[in-house]
Design a protein around this nucleic acid. Structure first.
Ligand SMILES: [Mn+2]
Ligand SMILES: [Mn+2]
Ligand SMILES: [Mn+2]
Ligand SMILES: [Mn+2]
Lengths: 219, 219
DNA sequence: CTATATTGTTAGATTAATCTAACAAAATTG
DNA sequence: CAATTTTGTTAGATTAATCTAACAATATAG
């Protein structure tokens, strides 16, 4: 069974793996906030336990088993976040740190019961997909708001970044998942976008913000 | 901040402390299921951190700080057990192992929210008191069923042992907290007691069982 | 009160997870 | 392509939590 530390490495590896599925030691070190020698010794351990493939001076790759176990930790994390928001009344900006701890609890029934109580949700409070019990993750292809055109009506569906600061920024403008945004205009100079929604008639969103907002086109 | 290991030692120390408040190294070792040298080195650490008083070859004593922090871990444990039973639908025999892990989560809001959702309960699912936010524990003086007399009407209020096996034994006889038991008779030879309750007309409970059942006398 | 048993301590080793310093390989750049 | 920068590895140390073996102090029991 994976230790808390190993579970955290698996999650980082899973999240860093791009199309090629490869992760560099230095990326992993910076993601995990540890030194490269620490990662070097940990990848050897993870390999010994069958979670990844490691060859000297090469980027590492998760094995199928590694991917599955990583996805199951992510599942625990996201189910927890959803439970904290939907069943315990927390704000979406408060749950990540708690989930970061709860995800390491070894008690399948605990998470199954959460899942059941919530009616088997497929996305977490930040719009990220919740892997299923077998560790399969449903790929969703949202569009970034920064790729939308003036005149479009879109629905806010996800975020590419869920930092507390960004979530609080969104709270401050009453922006939450599910809200429909009408794109009033787009400024060619700085790529900022003016949107209207709810009682907000013309809210200007910078490019930095727009590229972090994932939307579904409504019309 | 106490590590998970330290929190577990504090809890054991708190639970082992008798009237004199003293705990022997050997008791603690057997309670924690570790060797005496391990306890010896851990009590030095706990002392260094201000949680207990240790002198060579003497039993150890928790400091006020140690007692408080121990009670706060017990609080997290018992709030969790109550939450799992009352809000998540677990049986009282299923919750201890999960709470043993959840009690180590460092997130005051998480436990405060549980507390609030449950309306600030004062006892856990096994009838043990839940310490308050300051670590104060309310002393309850229940009577053991083995000290009751034939003819008495009593209400089941607590347990001196909450092992899964005992809880399953009680489940098998529909015995749960709050049930009123009429004491039909007491056998002088083996101290067994015959009780009636609900649709159970005459259930015989051995002395071993009776001494683990805590009751309040109704009449 | 002495012998024996129990309890507690010390010494030294182990494992997991981390670090820094030094060095080596690979990648980048002029 | 050679020099430099970046990335990765090795060596060796540290800390927390544990162990076994050996020994020492205290308690118990004839
Ligand atoms: Mn999160
Ligand atoms: Mn975590
Ligand atoms: Mn318990
Ligand atoms: Mn515990």
């Amino acid at each position: 069974m994976a230790s808390q530390t190993e579970e955290n490495y698996l999650k980082s590896l899973f999240n860093l793996a791009n199309e090629k599925g490869e992760v560099n030691i230095s990326e992993l070190a910076s993601q995990m906030q540890v030194s490269m020698p620490t990662v070097n010794s940990m990848v050897k351990t993870l390999q010994k336990n069958g979670w990844l493939i490691y060859e000297k001076y090469k980027p590492v790759t998760l094995t199928p088993e590694g991917k599955k176990d990583a996805a199951l930790v992510i599942r625990k994390h996201r189910l927890t976040e959803m439970f904290l928001v939907n069943k315990m009344g927390f704000g979406w900006e408060e749950v990540h740190e708690i989930a970061e701890q709860v995800e390491h609890i070894h008690a399948p029934k605990f998470f199954e019961r959460m899942d059941e109580m919530m009616g088997y949700p497929t996305i977490d409070p930040h719009g990220s997909p919740i892997p299923d019990k077998l560790g399969r993750i449903q790929e969703i292809n949202y569009l970034s708001l920064s790729d939308c055109k003036a005149g479009q009506l879109v629905k806010l569906a996800g975020l590419t970044n869920s930092s507390t600061e960004f979530l609080e920024f969104l709270n401050g403008r009453n922006l939450s998942l599910g809200i429909e945004l009408t794109i009033r205009s787009k400024e060619a100079y700085d790529q900022s976008i003016v949107v209207s929604y709810l009682n907000h008639n013309s809210e200007t969103l910078s490019e930095k913000v727009c590229e972090k907002l994932l939307v579904k086109v409504v019309e």
